[in-house]
Amino acid sequence: MVDSSHGFVRDRRGCRHWGPYGAAGLLVRRGQRLLLQRRSWRVHHGRTWSVPGGALRAGESPWDGACREFAEEVGEVPPLRHLHTLVDDHGGWAYHTVVADLAGPEGGPDRAEPPRRRRGDGEGSAYRWCTVAEVGALRLHPGFAASWPALVAVLEGTE
Rank of each mutant, 00 (worst) to 15 (best):
G7I: 01
G7M: 08
G7S: 09
D11P: 11
D11S: 10
R12S: 12
R12G: 11
R13Y: 01
R13L: 05
G14R: 10
C15G: 12
C15V: 12
C15D: 13
W18C: 13
G19F: 08
G19M: 13
G19V: 08
P20V: 07
P20S: 13
P20N: 11
P20K: 12
Y21R: 14
G22Q: 11
A23E: 13
A23G: 15
A23N: 15
A23L: 10
A24Y: 03
A24N: 07
A24M: 09
A24H: 04
G25K: 06
L26P: 06
L26H: 04
L26C: 04
L27F: 06
L27K: 11
V28F: 04
R30F: 01
Q32P: 13
R33D: 09
R33Q: 14
R33V: 07
R33S: 14
L34V: 04
L34G: 02
L34N: 08
L34S: 07
Q37V: 09
R38A: 08
R39L: 14
R39H: 15
W41Y: 11
R42L: 06
V43G: 11
V43N: 12
V43K: 11
H44L: 14
H44I: 04
G46N: 13
R47E: 14
R47P: 04
R47F: 00
T48K: 12
W49M: 05
W49R: 06
P52G: 02
G53N: 01
G53F: 00
G54P: 07
G54T: 03
L56D: 07
L56R: 06
R57F: 00
R57H: 03
G59N: 02
G59C: 05
E60T: 02
E60I: 03
S61Q: 01
S61L: 01
P62K: 03
D64S: 03
D64K: 02
G65P: 06
A66R: 01
A66L: 00
